[in-house]
Structure formats: structure tokens, C-alpha cells
Simulated scan of single mutants.
Amino acid sequence: MSKARTAIVTGSTSGIGLGIARALAADGCNVVVNSFTDSKEDHALADGIAREFHVTAAYIQADMSKGEECRRLVEETAERFGAVDILVNNAGIQHVEAVETFPTEKWNAIIAINLSSAFHTIAAAVPHMKRQGKGRIVNISSAHGLRASPFKSAYIAAKHGVVGLTKTVALELADDHVTCNAICPGYVLTPLVEAQIPDQMAAHNMDRETVVREVMLARQPIREFATVEQIGAATVFLCSDNAALITGTTLSVDGGWTAR
């Protein structure tokens, strides 16, 4: 029996990251879940994944706004599990405001967490993957990594940067059997997005179905939210042997948003 692979998923105690961690665990991977909070609930979450999927799972705290902690996350995983086979860069934050009033501290935080953290984790993981002779890197970008919207300057700059970083890393590692790809979701139904719906209903005086279709998903020809399970399944595929020749590309899961 082949040894189970070890996967790191940053920002994975809720939402898309948790969906990806669960999908990889269901595929037989040992999983490291991550956030900056280091609570009892975080560790219990990892324990629950281990019990449910019969894998080894651990929670490792790291503040993804700090480069040295990003790198420590990778090194601690390698020390505890003996390998870093899969790296999924998912951690992200958002702030919406016009560029002329966009707070500098918000810009710096978004670039650090949404973009620079991926650079640091990749830089730390690559030597391990090269020694192992293979590896998978999946960066969670966004439809906003391929298209722009107003009032999201830092987020869009970061997500475009993630796409560029993905292509560069793929080229550098092409001879090392390490692939690097980006997934670009549209709107995904997470607890964070679900919490926005009542406010949108009130602001537009619409019922839930109408505000979802006509406001939140107006750009998506298929006016349905993606699910965290679908993003998880896309990640599992990109980490599979069948995806060995897929590298340096973006996989849009956006209901046709970027086809326009």
C-alpha cells in the first residue's frame, strides 16, 4: 500500500478551505488545517476530520500575514508528517472601498494574506517536493483573478498576482514533477456569503431568490452558487495522477462568469 500523502490547506477552519481539507481527507490524504486563532475548536475540528475519514489530521496555527509563520507552517508539517506532498494556498481576506480612500493598512493586510503568504509557503514547500520527486501546489485565486470589479483594488490586485505566481512556479518546477495550478471560483456559498444575503435583501427590497439571482449572481450565466464540495473536488482532481500534465493554468468554477 502506498504511503498516504500529506496536504497543507491554509485558512481551512471554515468555508472553502475547510471544504478542500475535507475533500482531500476523503481522498485518503493526511491533512493539516490552519488558521491564526489556535482555539480548542480548531484542534477539535482536525480531530473530527481524522475520525471521520480515518486519516491523520492536525491543526497548526500560523498567522498568514507574517512570512516567517507561513514558512514555519510548512516546516512544522514536514517535521511532524515526514513530507509535504500537497500545498493548497487558500487563506484570504477582503475589504471593499474606493481606491482613493482605501486604507493603507487594509491594502497591506490583503496583499500579505492573499498573495505574499502563497509566495512564502511555496518557497518553503518546494525543496521538500523536489526531494520527494513530486508534488502538487494549488492556489485558490478567484474569478477576480481574471476579471476586475470596482472597489476591490487590493483583492483584485492580489488575486491577479496569484495567477501570475502560479504560472511562474509551474514553469520553474516543470522538470521536477511538481505542478502548480490556480482555481478561480465565482461566488461560493459559504457561511460568510450566506450572512450577506439578508443585508442584500433589505438593501434591494427583494426576496432571497431574487437577490441571489439578480444581484449577487448577476455576472454568472449559471445563476447558482458554487459549493465548497465542488471546489474541493476540483482540488482533488488537480492533485491526482490524472492531472500530472496540467500545470500553470487556471480552472474557473464560476458558472460562466469569465466566459464573457
Rank of each mutant, 00 (worst) to 15 (best):
H120C: 08
F119N: 10
E68L: 13
S39T: 13
F81Q: 01
T10K: 03
S142G: 10
Q61N: 14
A109H: 05
P127C: 01
E105Y: 12
A109W: 04
V96F: 03
N34R: 01
E97K: 15
V55T: 01
F81R: 04
V96E: 11
R131D: 10
R51T: 09
D38F: 11
A50G: 12
D47R: 03
S149V: 12
E52S: 09
R147S: 13
S12V: 03
N108T: 02
E100N: 14
A118M: 14
G15H: 09
I137C: 02
R136E: 05
A109M: 14
R51M: 04
V32F: 07
E68P: 14
T121W: 00
I16T: 03
A7G: 04
D27K: 14
P150K: 10
V9L: 14
L73H: 06
T13G: 05
L87K: 01
A143V: 10
I86Y: 02
H95R: 11
T121A: 03
D38E: 06
S116K: 13
A98P: 05
D85R: 04
V88T: 04
K106C: 00
R22H: 01
V32K: 01
G135Q: 03
R51N: 11
G82R: 07
F36Q: 13
A50F: 02
D27E: 13
L87C: 04
G92A: 12
I60W: 05
E100S: 15
H54P: 02
V84Q: 09
A148H: 04
Q94K: 08
F36P: 03
F119Y: 13
F36T: 04
T6L: 04
L24A: 02
A23T: 04
I20R: 07
G133R: 06
G82E: 04
A25T: 02
E75G: 14
A44Q: 10
R80A: 14
R131L: 09
A83T: 06
V9W: 11
A109Q: 14
I93L: 11
I113Q: 13
N30R: 00
G28D: 06
M64V: 10
H128L: 00
T104P: 12
V138K: 09
A143F: 07
R71M: 01
K134A: 15
A91Y: 08
A124L: 04
A83L: 05
V33I: 13
T56C: 14
G11H: 09
K106Q: 06
R147W: 11
T56Y: 11
G11R: 10
A7V: 05
L24R: 08
A4Q: 11
R51P: 10
H43R: 06
I93Q: 12
R80P: 07
A62R: 02
F81G: 11
G92P: 06
S65L: 12
P127F: 07
A125R: 05
E52F: 06
